[in-house]
Amino acid sequence: MHEMAIAESLLGIVLDESGRHGITRVNRIQLQVGALAAVVPAALTFCFELISRDTIVADAVLAIEMVAVVVRCPECKERFEVDNQFYVCPRCGPIPAGLDLTSGRELTLLSIEGESGDEDESSESPCGEEYPRGQ
């Protein structure tokens, strides 16, 4: 239900980064969403399409990588994936306290792919890796 707010924040950041890196058309956006964020990928995609329609991001692909909830057992330090929110260590059994969450809360933009209108600017960009068109 909070997908619209997330989509709006995401679009703001994508437009900001595109401007900075001279991207004039965005084709693909890669992001990570932790399972604890309770985001429905289809709803996020729908909201994002709706609000990006009249921008350089229109029709870009949202590549959403869902990240499982992983915690570390405070006893044996083993990392394990949480299934159905039952915190049971495969070695020590049910964990009463002291969970150490190592993933699952991500709401992170990872990369933007697109076309850069100005070659100079894109090669100048410190973190942009460039490759020939039509790959």
């Binding site: 997330i6 990872l110 990369s111 076309e115 850069s116 894109s122 890796e129």
Partner: peptide, 17 residues
């Protein structure tokens, strides 16, 4: 025109933060 891939690790909710 060239294709670029820009890695940007940013918290999507950073504006709210």
């Amino acid at each position: 025109m060239s294709q670029v891939k820009v890695p940007v690790v940013r918290n999507i909710l950073e504006a709210n933060e």
